[in-house]
Amino acid sequence: MLRDITIGQYYPTGSVIHRMDPRVKLFGTLVFLISVFAYKGIVGLAVVTLFLAAVIRISKVPFRYMVKGLRAIMVLMLITALFNLFLTPGEPLFQIWKLKITKEGIAAAVRMAIRLTYLILGTSLMTLTTTPNQLTDGLEKALRPLNKIHVPVHEIAMMMSIALRFIPILIEETDKIMKAQTARGANFDEGNIIQKAKSLVPLLVPLFISAFRRANDLAMAMEARCYCGGDGRTKMKPLRYQGLDYKAYAALILYLALLFVLRVVV
C-alpha cells in the first residue's frame, strides 16, 4: 500500500539525460517551470509541448510510468479546474443554478489543467532521471554561493539526503510494526475518524522511538568517521561539467529565448 507512491522515484535507463550533471537538470527544470508560466498563445504551447515530449523521449522513461504519478494530484487538478470554471468573471455561456460558466472560465480551467500537468511531468522527469544523492550533490554545489551570506548549504544538503535515504527504511519499519500490532489484535481500518486516530498511537509511538534510535546510531557512526560538517570536505565523485552539459545549457537557453521571442512576436 505504502509502496505504490511513484512521485520522486528514480527510474534508471542510462539515457543521455540520466548522465547529465544534476546542476544542468536543476537549471533545466527551472527553465521549464518558467516557460510553462510564460508561454503565450497556441504557438507557445506547441513549443512547450514539443520540448517536453522531446525530453521525455530522450530520457527513455516510459510515458505510462510518468502518467502514474499524475494520479496522485488528480484531486488537486479537479478542484483547481472547477474553481476556474465557475469563478472566472466574463461572458456567461450558460448557468446552472447559481453557478455561471463563462467562456473565460473554460479557457482558464483548461490552461490551468495543462500547466499543472506539465509542472508535474517536468519536475517528476527530473527526479526520475536523477538519484536523490546526485540531486542533493547538485543542489549543494549550485547553491554554494549562498554560503557567503551564512546559509548552511552543506548542512541542508546533508539533511536532505539523510531524510531521503530514510524514507524507505521508515516505510519498512511502519509495515513491520503494523503487522506486529495487528497480531496483537489492533485494527487500523475500522471505526470512525476518532477511533482511527486513536488506533494510530500503537503505530506512531514505536515508529518515533525507532526513528530516534536510528538517528542516534547514525550520528554516532558519522562522528566515529570524523564527520564535522562541510568545510574542507572533498567528494569521492566531484561534479564536473562535460561537453554534453554545455550543449544542454545551450539548448535550454535557446529554448527560453525562442519562447520570449514568440511572446513578443505573436
Binding site: 513491520k176 506486529a180 497480531a183 496483537r184 498511537v201 514505536p206 525507532s210
Partner: peptide, 20 residues
C-alpha cells in the same frame, strides 16, 4: 481473522520495538 489472531499468537523479531 481477528479470532484466528487471538488463537494463534505471533511474536515478531525484536518484539520490544512494538512497545508503546
Amino acid at each position: 481473522m481477528r479470532k484466528l489472531r487471538s488463537k494463534v499468537g505471533l511474536v515478531f523479531q525484536y518484539p520490544e520495538h512494538q512497545l508503546f
